[in-house]
Structures are given as structure tokens and as C-alpha cells.
Amino acid sequence: MMRLPYLLLIFLAATPTFGREIAFPPISGYIPPLDHNRAQQQILNGNDDGAGLFQEYTPFAGLTTFANLPFVHCLGEGEVERYDIAILGAPFDTGTTARPGARFGPGGIRQGSRRISPDAAWSVYTGENTFLSWAKIVDCGDAPLTFLDNTIALKQLDYSHKKIVGRKANSTEYTTPRILTLGGDHTTTLSALRSTFQAWGAVSVIHFDSHIDTWDPEVLGGGISHYAGVNHGTFLHIAHEEGLILNNSMHAGIRAPVIRKKGDIRNDLRCGFEMVTARELDRIGTDGVIRKLKDRVAGTRAVYISVDIDVLDPAYAPATGTAEVGGWTTRELLTILDGLAGLPVIGADVVEVAPAYDNVGETTVLAAAEVAHSLLTLMVKQPVG
């Protein structure tokens, strides 16, 4: 027992750094490594207040915007800083027919995106960085919506979209800004489609979901009131009735049952949709799904992509209002989205994220953040003026 200190001294004496000034390894950031080592030693010696270690930016510091993007008060009065793509939160969940909680979706998706750094987001698949493209991308925060009156809240969301799209873009070539909406329940897509119609006219919709969402308000809402008929399962029916979407739109990932044996599918076709069911992927693969989606919207001037996170199986996205088993994996969905490169995507959303039902690993919000990242990539790939 008495020999242990002696052996320890022999070990320390043989160590190259014993009795010398320790040179700490550099950390990442904007401080040059040599300066950083000197600054750390100064702090240890009590000769510096830490200013030499200051970093202008780290992914987990400051306000939580999507992917650590700059915040712009896009809904403010007068001139604001220009942008090409705006991230807009839609904290609304009183149009859901199942579990509420998606009003916290925008915050949850932003939380899931905190690991994404705009200057360090180079794709290993494409070698590209969406945030360093031609487009100036900003986070506009959330639309201020009342949670006590759906009719008023949707009018407020309509106004928010209209104001953001109505500003001048930063780019001189592509003059109209576009929006990526973070939901919120799926009712919020109706406001987004109204704003895209304002700027680009009727669009083809690629709708990733486990539900068709073209139900007649008389069926889903029971014909009780107009208020009850506007919800997350009827918004595509309403969008068709308002002339916002074209008749070459497409569902992807459908697997939930319908209410009427034949009537709901007939109405879905009338609203301009065809579908790829969730299980078709097992037969035709991701390439087959991509091909069917692209063929359906071929020749369209403008495409809108809406992703209900429940298109994923609950194993990959438990935090959603109306979960349906038998869905796609996160990898499959991201592969399909990336395969849509080349389409003229002028707007998109990720909706139905309800963080209260997520697990401790934040599986759903991490998936939703990466889906949003993929949608931004599509929006800069084939821009439309």
C-alpha cells in the first residue's frame, strides 16, 4: 500500500506534460486555435476575464429560431429586412378532431432544429448547403392567433400569410417571397394555400398524410355549423371549392379508414386528388413513389407540398394528434422528399406536431425539423419568380 504514491510519481514524471504548461486542444468556433490556447491559459492563470473565448455564435445559445436562422419581424409595420423564404409558425390546434396540442408544434420543431447550423449544414448526399444558396432564409416567428375563436384565428393567419408574401423579396431575380409554415394542425394549410393563390394562382398539391383530408364539411363536422365544418380533415375540400388547387394533386402515405365506403373517395377524386397508399411503398419502393408523384404534377407551374407528420409511423412520430399505425419510416419520407428535386415548389408546411406526446428523445420534433430542412431544399432547387 505504501508503494502506490511512489509509483504514481514515477508515472507522472514519465508523462511529457508533467511540470510543464498544459496546452489545451482548441474548440470549434471563430477563435483561431493558437489564440484560443493562449486565452484558456490566461484564464487559468487568472490574467483574463474570458473575453478571449467569446464566440459570436453557437448552436445552443440565444433565442430558438428554426435552424438558428436570423429572426425578422416580418409582420411589423413599414419596411423590414428583406428575405426570400420565411419560416412562419402557426400555433393553432382547435381544428383537430383528435388529440389537441399542435399549437405547441412550431416551438417544438424549432427545438428539434437547434442542432442545425446554417454555416455547417452541408449534405453528405448532395454536397450542397441549402442555407448558403441564392435564397435568404429567415424565421418570422409565430403568427399571433387567438385560441378562443377559430374563425378569427384563421383570418389572422390569412392576414399574416398575405403580409409576408406581399413584401419584396431579397433576390432581384425571384421577386415573390415564399413561406414554410410550421404547424399547428392541418387546418392551417388553408391559409397557406390562399396566400400561394394570391401570388402564383392555383397550385398542384402534394399532400403527405395518413388521412385524405378532403372530407365534405357536411360529413366531418356534421353540418352543425360552418365553424365546425372548417377543420383539419376538410381543408382540402374547402381549398378545392375556393379554386385554390388544381385537379392534378396527389396524396402520399394514405392508410387511415374513410367515413363513407364510396362517397369519400368519390369526393376526393372530385377535389382533384389521386393517392399513393402507405403500403404501395412495399411494392414499388421509394423510386416508384417519387415517379408517381412527379408524373402526377408534371407540367405544373407551381407546386405546394404539405407534410402531416402522421404520414410517419407512430414509432417514428408518436407526437401527433391522430396517429395511424402502418406508416413510413423517417428515412423513407426524407428519401422521397429529396427525390422531388426539380419540381417548382413555391410553398410548404410541416404540421400536426404535438410535442406533449413525444418521448424523451424528442423523436418527432427531430424528424419534423429534418423534414422542414428537406422542404427548404426543394424550395431553393427550382425557384419560381
Rank of each mutant, 00 (worst) to 15 (best):
D185K: 04
L269A: 05
F147C: 06
T364Q: 07
L8G: 11
P26A: 15
D48P: 00
L53T: 08
K168C: 00
S123F: 13
T330F: 06
T330P: 08
A341G: 12
Q41E: 11
D268N: 06
D49L: 11
A13E: 08
T58V: 14
V311G: 04
G108D: 09
A252T: 11
I137R: 01
H237N: 11
S113A: 14
G112P: 10
L44C: 07
R270Y: 00
Y159D: 14
L378H: 08
P5S: 10
D287Y: 08
G342Y: 03
I254A: 06
P383F: 14
Y304S: 01
L343W: 07
S113V: 09
S28H: 09
A298W: 08
G385F: 02
G166H: 02
V307W: 05
T94E: 12
G223H: 09
D349P: 13
L281G: 05
G95R: 01
F18G: 05
E173L: 12
M379G: 06
W200M: 04
A143D: 12
L34C: 01
R283S: 07
E370S: 15
I265L: 11
R301C: 04
A13Q: 11
D158L: 02
Y83W: 01
I290Y: 07
S117M: 09
P5C: 03
T151S: 11
L8Q: 13
L312I: 12
G321D: 12
R114V: 13
F104V: 13
G288Q: 03
F208P: 11
F24P: 00
L190T: 07
T329D: 06
N359H: 12
R296Y: 05
T187N: 11
T176S: 09
H73P: 02
A298H: 14
D287R: 09
P70L: 05
T320D: 07
C74K: 00
S28C: 11
S123I: 06
K136M: 05
D35E: 15
G89S: 10
I284R: 02
R260A: 04
D295A: 10
K261V: 12
I206D: 02
D93Y: 09
A228D: 15
V384Q: 06
T176M: 03
V165H: 03
L145K: 05
